[in-house]
């Protein structure tokens, strides 16, 4: 079921962009819609961080991913670029697992 999601998702993402150019401005000028659209990425990304760090299916688990996340936060505080942040997290988790310090 990967390709249906990719195709429908891609089409939808494109149509959302196109809508911004072709829909009458008044429709999108709604103050409430504007505020909500600004809040959605923050809420969804935060939920994705949490779920991807702690979940295994429908169970919660603390493992090397949490150490990776902590390392990523340190990298972000130090203003590291995106790729460095991601690499630091992966290396941290990989090292912890290789040394048997974490699952």
């Amino acid at each position: 079921m990967i390709w249906p999601a990719v195709i429908i998702g891609s089409l939808g993402a494109y149509l959302l962009k196109l809508a911004g150019y072709v829909v009458p401005e008044r429709v999108l000028e709604n103050e409430r819609l504007r505020r909500l659209t600004a809040l959605l990425p923050v809420a969804l990304l935060a939920a994705l961080v949490a779920v991807q760090t702690f979940s295994v299916g429908t169970a919660l688990q603390v493992d090397a991913r949490l150490a990776g996340l902590a390392a990523a936060i340190v990298a972000l505080i130090l203003r590291a670029p995106f790729l460095v942040v991601v690499l630091v997290a992966a290396v941290t988790a990989a090292v912890l697992r290789a040394t048997g310090l974490s699952v």
């Binding site: 990425p41 923050v42 991913r65 991601v86 997290a89 992966a90 697992r97």
Partner: peptide
Amino acid sequence: TLGLDAAVPAGFIALLWPRLRDRSLIALA
């Protein structure tokens, strides 16, 4: 083994980080 499962949340938090511009956004997150 390569820690790629830890790279996923790290990618999301890197996207989230610059959006946390004030207290209400941090609280929302």
